[in-house]
C-alpha cells in the first residue's frame, strides 16, 4: 500500500486559501469544489484530492502547514482512507468541480 494526500474539508473550508492547488506538481490532482462544506455553514468551498493521480510527495502538506499554516492535509494509506475522490467521478462545472466519493480500492459505494 502507499500514501496519498487527504484534505480535511472542514479545516480547509474555514479559509479556502487555494494555495496547495497551485503547488501540487501533478496536474488535475488537487481540485476545488466551491460548494464543499456549505452544509456546515462554510461559504467558499474546499480543496480535495483525486487520489488516483496523487504521487504521494507530500508537497501539499508542507505548503498547507508552512505557507498557509492551516494543517488541513494529512498523508494516509490508500486502503485506510475511506471514500474519496477519483478522476473518473469528477465533474467540472462553471469555475468549480465536484466528485462523487468512492472507495479507491473497491470502487464506488
Amino acid at each position: 500500500m502507499y500514501l496519498v494526500a487527504n484534505i480535511e474539508t472542514e479545516i480547509c473550508a474555514a479559509t479556502s486559501c487555494k494555495l496547495c492547488t497551485q503547488y501540487c506538481p501533478e496536474a488535475n490532482t488537487i481540485l476545488y469544489d466551491n460548494e464543499a462544506g456549505q452544509d456546515k455553514g462554510f461559504k467558499y468551498g474546499a480543496a480535495y484530492v483525486a487520489v488516483d493521480r496523487c504521487k504521494g510527495c507530500a508537497q501539499c502538506v508542507w505548503v498547507c502547514d508552512n505557507m498557509a499554516k492551516h494543517n488541513a492535509i494529512k498523508m494516509e494509506m490508500i486502503d485506510q482512507i475511506g471514500d474519496t475522490a477519483l478522476t473518473e467521478n469528477v465533474t467540472y462545472g462553471e469555475k468549480t468541480s465536484s466528485a462523487v466519493l468512492a472507495n479507491p480500492v473497491r470502487g464506488q459505494g
Binding site: 487555494k18 492547488t21 497551485q22 503547488y23 501540487c24 506538481p25 501533478e26 496536474a27 488535475n28 488537487i30 481540485l31 476545488y32 466551491n34 480543496a47 493521480r53 504521487k55 504521494g56 510527495c57 507530500a58 508537497q59 467540472y92 469555475k95 468549480t96 468541480s97
Partner: peptide, 29 residues
Amino acid sequence: SVSQVGTFKEILEEHPMCAGCAMTLFIRL
C-alpha cells in the same frame, strides 16, 4: 489563470516524472 487551477481541466495529463519533482510543477504552471 494559475489562481483558478483545480476548477478547470488542465492540458497536462498523467506522466512518469518523479513524485514531487519541481520541474513537473514548473511545467504544469
